[in-house]
């Protein structure tokens, strides 16, 4: 049989390319729009202000906190959903996905009813310890985790469902305990999904606004994250709002692009 030596390049259907270009431009236009508004002259001064410094710090704490919480409780949740059969599983899965469809402000109000000072869990907690989640940095992390963790859970659960379970069986016949199988086989096999799930979680937490302002409140230096700072600034200081927005874009693009290259670079 004769093997063709010419490299076959996939030709893209023009209609598909045209629609894809529309898709890309759709994302580009708002970005260009906001960049066109950037007050370049006053930028250094805005970035040096306490408001911005505080908001950057809180946003990093909140988003990293949400990623940490999602790793500690979200990964086990994904594993149980993928691997353990139990009653009402569809209900539990729906519950996990709820924050993705709930308006974040509603999510924040629900968090208040659950973990607020008069909430069904927050109330007894306050009575016993005097500890209150809302209006503290912990409240910001809770709100961010609530809206962002579902991204990790669904991504990793889907990956766990598709992973070839015979690898896990093979590992156990080689003497690996269930915990070792999880650590040395299952998690490495789904690591691309874990990484993208964590990135999505981080990105969603960084942009989180509604649940945060409703549950955690808005106080510069304590609970005012970048999106809250933008919101307040939009009505008082448009230049600052634009500057902070652009700063958020730079931070998130930087992190997403660099991590993407590191983790998925080999495949693209």
């Amino acid at each position: 049989m004769k093997v063709p030596t010419r490299r076959v390049t996939q030709s893209a259907p023009p209609a598909l390319v045209a629609l894809a270009v529309i898709g890309a431009v759709f994302f580009l236009v708002p970005v260009v729009g906001i960049v066109a508004q950037v007050p370049w002259r006053s930028l250094p001064e805005i970035f040096r202000s306490d408001i911005v410094a505080n908001a950057v710090r809180l946003s990093l704490i909140a988003s990293v906190g949400a990623v940490t919480a999602a790793t500690v409780i979200g990964l086990p949740l994904a594993w149980v959903l993928a691997r353990v059969d139990f009653a009402f599983k569809p209900l539990v899965r729906g519950l996990v996905l709820l924050p993705m469809v709930l308006p974040p402000v509603v999510g924040g109000a629900a968090l208040l009813f659950g973990f607020g000072r008069r909430g069904i869990v927050g109330g007894p907690l306050y009575d016993a310890t005097g500890f209150v989640l809302p209006f503290s940095v912990w409240g910001v992390i809770v709100a961010s985790t609530f809206v962002a963790m579902p991204f990790l859970v669904i991504t990793v659960e889907a990956a766990l469902r598709t992973v070839d379970r015979r690898y896990e069986g093979a590992a156990s016949t080689l003497g690996a305990s269930p915990w070792t199988v999880l650590r040395r086989v299952t998690i490495p096999l789904v690591s691309p999904a874990v990484v993208s799930g964590l990135l999505l979680t981080w990105a969603r937490a960084l942009g989180e606004f509604g649940a945060t302002i409703t549950f955690a409140g808005n106080l510069q230096g304590r609970t005012q994250t970048l999106p809250l700072a933008v919101f307040v600034a939009l009505e008082t200081d448009r230049d600052a709002a634009v500057a902070i927005s652009v700063l958020m874009m730079v931070i998130s693009l930087g992190v997403l692009v660099s991590l993407r290259d590191r983790w998925w670079g080999a495949h693209s």
């Binding site: 209006f135 302002i213 409703t214 955690a216 409140g217 808005n218 106080l219 304590r222 307040v232």
Partner: peptide
């Protein structure tokens, strides 16, 4: 102050 609310109703 613990929070500056975005509007008086909230």
């Amino acid at each position: 102050v613990d929070t500056y609310e975005p509007n008086v109703r909230s």
